[in-house]
Amino acid sequence: MGIKSFQGARKQQQQSTSQPVALKVKDYMTTNLITFKPDQSVQQVVECLIKYKISGGPVVNDKNELVGIISEGDCLKHLSESRYYNMPLQQDNVEKRMVANVETIDGNMDVFDAANKFLNSKRRRFPIVENGKLVGQISQKDILKAALQLKGENWNSKTKG
C-alpha cells in the first residue's frame, strides 16, 4: 500500500511539472485593443489603421459585445468601389463593410491548438469573447511570441506527446 501511494504521488508530481507547458491563449492575447463602432465611417477606420499600424480590429456595440471585424482589405474594397461608382468615402460606415459572422477563439485554448486554427483558417487574428463581451484578441504574432518563450525541452516534450 505504501508503494502504491508513493507511485500515485510521484505520478501526480510528474503531471504538475508538465503543466507549465500548456500555454493558454488568454495568457498571450492582447487586451488593450483598438476597437471600432458600427456607425463609424470607413475613413475613420483607415485613419486608425494607419495611425496605430494595425491591419484591422474588432467592431463592438455600446455593451462591448462583438458584432463584427473590419480589416484593411474591407477598407480597400470600399475605397475601390467608391472610386468606381464615384461615391464619396464618407458615405459608408463600418457596419456596411465589416464581416459580421466572426469566428472567435476560446481563451483557454492551448497556443499550439490556436496555431493550427490559424493555419487552417488563414486568418490573422481571432477575437476572444467571455460572457458575450470582447475581452481580447490573439494574433499570429502573439502565438509566435508564446513559442519563443518556451524552453527547448518543453517544446520537444509537447510536440512528441
Rank of each mutant, 00 (worst) to 15 (best):
L33C: 08
T35E: 06
K37C: 01
K37D: 06
P38I: 08
D39M: 07
D39W: 13
Q40S: 06
S41K: 05
V42S: 00
V42A: 01
Q44I: 00
V45T: 05
E47G: 03
E47S: 11
L49A: 12
L49W: 12
K51C: 06
K51S: 11
K51V: 07
K51A: 14
Y52N: 13
K53M: 12
I54T: 14
I54C: 11
S55D: 10
S55Y: 03
G56W: 01
G56K: 02
G57K: 14
G57A: 10
P58N: 15
P58D: 06
V59R: 04
V60Y: 02
V60E: 04
V60D: 02
V60I: 11
N61R: 09
N61A: 10
N61Q: 11
K63S: 07
N64Y: 10
N64L: 04
N64S: 12
E65T: 08
E65S: 02
L66K: 07
L66I: 09
L66A: 00
V67W: 00
V67N: 04
V67Q: 07
G68L: 07
G68N: 04
G68M: 00
I69N: 02
I70V: 07
I70Q: 00
I70R: 00
S71M: 05
G73V: 06
G73Y: 04
D74C: 00
L76Q: 08
K77A: 09
H78M: 05
H78F: 03
L79T: 06
L79M: 14
S80Q: 14
S82D: 08
R83S: 08
R83D: 03
Y84M: 10
Y84E: 13
L89I: 10
L89T: 13
L89Y: 03
L89S: 12
L89R: 07
Q90H: 09
Q91E: 10
V94H: 01
E95F: 14
E95T: 08
K96S: 14
K96T: 14
K96V: 08
K96D: 12
R97M: 14
R97P: 03
M98C: 11
V99P: 05
V99Q: 15
A100T: 14
N101K: 13
V102W: 03
E103S: 10
T104S: 01
D106T: 03
G107D: 02
G107S: 00
M109V: 02
M109H: 04
M109S: 06
D110I: 01
D110A: 03
D110G: 01
D110V: 02
V111E: 02
V111K: 14
V111C: 09
F112A: 15
D113E: 15
A114P: 07
N116K: 15
K117T: 11
K117I: 10
F118R: 03
L119E: 12
L119F: 10
L119Q: 12
S121P: 15
K122G: 12
R123W: 09
R123A: 15
R123Y: 10
R124S: 15
R124V: 15
R124P: 11
R125E: 11
F126S: 05
F126V: 05
P127K: 13
I128R: 07
I128M: 09
I128S: 07
I128C: 13
E130W: 10
